[in-house]
Design a protein around this nucleic acid. Structure first.
Length: 415
RNA sequence: CGGGGAUUGGCGCAAUUGGCUAGCGCGCAUGCAUGGGGUGCAUGAGGUUGCAGGUUCGAAUCCUGUAUUCCCGACCA
């Protein structure tokens, strides 16, 4: 992509109303633009990051036999009346044709349970799991902190269905592992911990995945040895590490980036979702629910990975792998060399953002590169050519090195 | 939902106690110079000061209402 053609601009100043680090940097970098409180437009750079996170999640869900579907964001209120959750205060209500009562779904148990019920009748159909990646709507009393708590936000929600509790327990552990793999792959593995939580109002058990960062809105109590924590809801009843019994837990700030539940029979009972067992007897279906927020995770990555100059994207979710800065482009021979490098990178399928602006000074281009935060910066200029090639620098390192023109591609692929 | 702040060109801000044609920086356009950490100079475009009422000879400024937005708290499947 040529920077000169990119939709979205960087800015020296952040809007007054963007106060959290992620809102500031993502807005200044041209990744997102606020539409209304808690609701954001994703510009090309931002959408690329979101897509990458979603695709990693998608791959891991597919590996554990999750089948991707897409349910409507807008449905009848009916299912919510059935479960009694239509009174939930974050639920958006709206009217359809003929004065029908509709809702914008904040989660999809009320939709997925009746849906799966239409196809699953027998123990032969179980276990099974479906998931979707879709925008949710919650009328939060107070949207805040950029992408960390929105009123419309992106979510992956996986729902699993089982013949009995033992099978639910089995699958729950599989999903837990998949989640750790996701956090590892998106670059948050070292700072994301399993956190024991209450099940909230609708489920007796749950675990959260909390990413440690100073600006996190949650306080969790961490066992440093096990890298496991308990959240503030249950700290009064559970004062020690659930895994090693350690009673010296440390209170730390974190952001919740995933939440997994054993729903058990809460929803299958509400919708009378039974299956026939081997003996032809009706049995209640056991359910699990596994949430992951790609948009919130995107904000969390920024909170955890930045410096005073801008964002430092982990390689796996960066909008582009290489930020190619062309300097002295008003000189024809340098422009030609820069264009060739750009083309070489494209030919090798290396994602590259090429700052091809000829009327912008070096400092401005470096500042933009640091703000946007792609992992590798390449500089081609009169100076770099005199030094024998292109200058290579990692976003998170101070030192740069010169790579010869005839071999720089191999080195970049190797890095 | 309770408490507090904010709202002035696209963005960030200013405008003595109410007083001339509402200024400045960034950005944008044009030109000249510059050319490795947001470069300099010049010229120019762009605003009925969130909205609706009210007070006044006169309102960005005071009053009432309302909208939006941010922060603290409560809430958070």
């Amino acid at each position: 992509m040529r920077y000169s053609q990119l939709f979205g601009k960087t800015s020296k100043t952040a809007p007054t109303d963007a106060d959290s680090v992620n809102a500031k940097l993502l807005t200044q970098g041209g990744f997102i633009q606020k539409e209304i409180s808690g609701v954001y437009n994703y510009l090309p750079l931002g959408l690329r990051v979101l897509n990458k996170i979603q695709n990693i999640v998608r791959e891991e869900m597919n590996k554990i036999e999750g089948q991707e579907i897409l349910m409507p964001a807008m449905t009848s209120e009916e299912g919510w009346v059935t479960t009694g959750r239509n009174a939930m205060d974050v639920l958006f209500h709206l009217k359809g044709q003929g004065d029908t009562n509709l809702v914008l779904n904040p989660t999809h148990e009320e939709v997925v349970t009746p849906l799966v019920q239409k196809y699953v009748f027998s123990y032969r159909d179980l276990p099974m799991a479906v998931y979707q990646i879709q925008n949710k709507f919650r009328n939060e009393a107070r949207a805040k902190s950029g992408l960390l708590r929105g009123r419309e936000f992106n979510m992956k929600d996986l729902y699993s269905f089982h013949t009995d509790e033992a099978d639910l327990d089995r699958y729950y552990e599989i999903v837990k592992k998949a989640y750790f793999e996701i956090y590892k792959r998106i670059g948050l593995g070292d700072i994301t911990v399993l956190t024991f939580a209450s099940g909230g109002a609708f489920s007796p058990f749950s675990h959260e995945f909390q990413t440690l960062n100073e600006n996190g809105e949650d306080t969790i109590h961490l066992c440093k040895k096990c890298k496991v924590a308990i959240n503030k809801e249950i700290i009064d009843t559970q004062k020690t590490c659930p895994e090693c019994g350690n009673d010296k837990l440390e209170a730390v700030k974190a952001t919740e980036v995933g939440n997994i539940f054993k729903l058990r029979t809460k929803f299958s009972e509400a919708f009378k979702f039974y299956y026939s067992d081997q003996n032809g007897q009706d049995k209640i279906v056991e359910m699990g629910c596994f949430g992951f927020g790609p948009s919130r995770t995107m904000g969390t990555i920024v909170e955890a990975c930045h410096d005073d100059k801008g964002i430092i994207w982990p390689k796996s979710v960066a909008p582009y792998q290489v930020h190619l800065v062309g300097l002295d482009l008003f000189e024809e021979n340098i422009k030609t060399q820069a264009e060739k490098i750009y083309q070489d990178l494209l030919d090798k399928n290396i994602e590259v953002l090429f700052d091809d602006r000829s009327d912008v000074t070096a400092g401005a281009k470096f500042a933009d590169a640091d703000l946007i935060g792609n992992p590798i910066r390449l500089v081609i200029s009169k100076r770099s050519l005199e030094n024998g090639g292109v200058e290579f620098k990692n976003r998170n390192k101070e030192k740069s090195e010169i790579l010869p023109l005839d071999s720089f591609l191999n080195k970049i692929i190797a890095k």
